[in-house]
Design a protein around this nucleic acid. Structure first.
Length: 201
DNA sequence: ACCGGGATGTTCT
DNA sequence: GAACATCCCGGTG
């Protein structure tokens, strides 16, 4: 009924993969959810990307083969999960910014105990990581091989024909690039969407 | 609803 | 030592 997304899907520029990832299903042990918001970080010349400064111990995964997970730690307390895109040697990643729970919502409520409403369970990149229990131990794992039970699946739901598009969130550099994508009029989005004017909260 | 600030520690200069 | 691809809480209107 659903099939795992393969390596070829990810072996493209992040700007192509990011909108195509909308409506795909993120799966981890006991939980699953539909991806509704993504951001592209593309190439060595993207000033907003961690890869902008070149290869470091942290960004090594971004320069590696596509279809792997890039997980980073930020603000001293949050993990965020990306899918590595493009061919090895060319840095690319798509940040998973929001997910709508499909399975394991009780587990997500326990992990996200501060969320007072279900809409807040995974409507932000660090919330997604917490709801899915993704952390540094998952950095670099191969999604196409479902390592540690984490994968991305296609259940037959096509990406939106015309995704909502906006600038990326939280950057001090590269903030003008319209490289954020979302399912139009979706309530579980991390921020209001410029092109639709729709607010998640 | 909107806004301001604190938490907390890794990463790279 | 500064920056950080965030989140949460408490203030005010």
């Amino acid at each position: 009924m659903s099939r795992r997304v393969g390596r070829r899907f990810f072996e493209r520029p992040a700007l192509e993969v990011a909108p195509d990832l909308l409506n795909k299903v993120l799966v981890a042990p006991g939980v699953a959810g539909r991806i509704v918001e993504t951001e592209a970080y593309q190439g060595a010349d993207d000033p907003g990307s961690h890869a902008y400064r070149g290869v470091t111990p942290r960004t090594e995964v971004m320069f590696g083969p596509p279809g792997h997970l890039y997980v980073y730690f930020t603000y001293g307390m949050h993990w965020c999960a990306n899918v590595v895109t493009d061919r090895a040697g060319t840095p690319g990643a798509v940040l998973i910014r929001a997910v709508v729970p499909i399975r394991g919502i009780e587990a997500m409520r326990l992990r996200r105990s501060r969320a007072r409403r279900d809409v807040d369970l995974a409507n932000g990149p660090a919330k997604v990581a917490q709801a899915f229990a993704i952390d540094g131990t998952h950095d670099g794992i191969d999604l196409t091989g479902a390592h540690l039970g984490v994968s991305i699946r296609d259940d037959g739901t096509a990406p939106p024909a015309i995704p909502a598009v906006g600038v990326r969130i939280g950057l001090s550099k590269g903030q003008d690039l319209p490289w954020r994508f979302a399912v139009p009029d979706c309530a579980e989005v991390s921020r209001p969407h410029p092109t639709t004017g729709h607010d998640a909260r």
